[in-house]
Design a protein around this nucleic acid. Structure first.
Lengths: 255, 255
DNA sequence: CGTTACCTTGAATCTCCTCAATACACGTGG
DNA sequence: CCACGTGTATTGAGGAGATTCAAGGTAACG
């Protein structure tokens, strides 16, 4: 882990107040009633800032907290004893992480900060009052769980049935679109914080084969990806190459 | 689809009353309060009996119902235009299907009856009252969604990172254990209603390769599988071969 | 007794993996 | 400032692993 210069003001950390949550301004996220915002503000117990590379959850663990990503990227993965690793999904700003640890009793995967991140922290024991007093928010939590299932299903088809090129293209497209929803794009450009090795562990390929697939894919001109900077050149053709329909704009909840 | 002799008594169909739901007797499922049982009984609007091979949900569709499997097996899958198919998960007695269609607005996968099945039918519009009036049941719904996510994650690692033999063994083991939880085993034996082609579409392999992998795997003596009848011979070694820990007994909800 | 659905096997070919070497950017310590 | 280590990207070569094509084989059913 590289040491970075972290300048921190001494004293109390500055927290983002929920009422002025920057994510709420994005068109992606649904509007809340004042009571809901108030409840969420009370639900939130703090913020957690972590540098890239830190582990947030370990597989099999339990935790007194659950989180929402406020800024930065995280990814969740499962590892086999001999070192093989499969990345299961990513979480971007607005996404929930650690729900499994709160609902089931232990989490089935590890979660790691992919970039420097800021997480909103919620105490686990207040999840129950949320279900009791705010059916709307409870429904939102379920919505997010269903969405997660949906994404994993998409990844499953990709890994199981798509060719190498389709598979890699699918992942890049998916992450680009989700980054856009989370307000991380400028025009057709994003900074992708992950390496080819992450991509390989997401696609279920070796690093070498991922690299060669990328080379062929780049030649198609659908996108550019140098260093961290990813540019989507022809989203439409990319979408149809992967065999998907153009996604409709969703308005979704988050906490 | 083969025509079967379906003998049906004329007149009103016989329904399983929730209070005497046979699934509730299994140790796997949690006990409900009398009020909860009453609510569920009112929530349930009927039963749906389907023969093997029928489609229950089509990808991209919406539905006024959601279901619980009362008996039989179903599987959900996604198809690409050119015919490639990936089975994403199975649903056994006690499992929920079609939640995505009720929570998100359309379902991301198709669902088909693998064997003859009986489904409990719940009207979608009563899902909201459930969240409003029975936080405990709402929590259960979320629990089931989180469990689903958990299973899909396991399948992802298998498809992405396990060898052919491990992968096939994992699926068989997983389905055997879930069948046992649903009360479908007699000793170490179950009737598996799926073919090698289903297994191939679950593992992400071609039918031929699945067959050859099975042959090698059978030689290990961990299990027997002839015709429909599957016998688990050495569950412990099978578990460690796949690289898993022995699962603890879970008590889980269902509707 | 012919059809249908599944299972099985061999052969040729393509995909993907491992091993190995090189290249480039960056930050550290001399 | 330069030498060196570290992390990431790139490329070639040889060998497993999977796919497709093609041919049987078996059991159930009408």
């Amino acid at each position: 882990m590289g040491k970075r210069k972290v300048k921190k003001a001494a004293g109390t950390p500055i927290q983002t107040p929920c009422a002025r949550c920057p994510l709420r301004r994005l068109p992606t996220f649904r509007k809340f009633t004042p009571e809901e915002v108030e409840f969420i503000a009370a639900f939130k117990s703090g913020e957690l800032r972590l540098e890239a590379g830190n582990t947030i959850f370990s597989e099999g663990t339990n935790s007194p907290h659950l989180y929402t990503v406020l800024s930065g990227w995280t990814f969740k993965y499962k590892a086999l004893e001999d070192g093989r690793r499969q990345i299961v999904n990513y979480a971007l700003p607005g996404d929930f992480i650690g729900l499994q640890a709160s609902i089931l009793d232990s989490i089935g995967h590890s979660i790691e900060a992919l970039s420097d991140v800021v997480l909103c922290v919620f105490p686990r024991e207040k999840l129950w009052p949320l279900f009791e007093r705010h059916a709307g928010l409870a429904f939102d939590v379920t919505w997010l769980a269903a969405r997660e299932e949906n994404i994993l299903g998409d990844y499953l088809v990709s890994i199981g049935r798509r060719t190498a090129a389709e598979r890699v293209a699918f992942i890049l497209l998916n992450l680009f679109q989700r980054a856009r929803q989370s307000g991380l794009t400028r025009g057709n450009t994003v900074d992708f914080p992950f390496t080819q090795e992450h991509l390989a562990d997401t696609a279920g390929f070796s690093l070498v084969h991922t690299n060669k697939t990328l080379k062929r894919l780049r030649a198609s001109g659908l996108f550019k990806w140098n260093a961290a900077s990813f540019e989507m050149v022809d989203e439409e053709r990319m979408t149809e190459f992967v065999g998907l329909a153009t996604p409709d704009e969703v308005v979704r909840p988050f906490l």
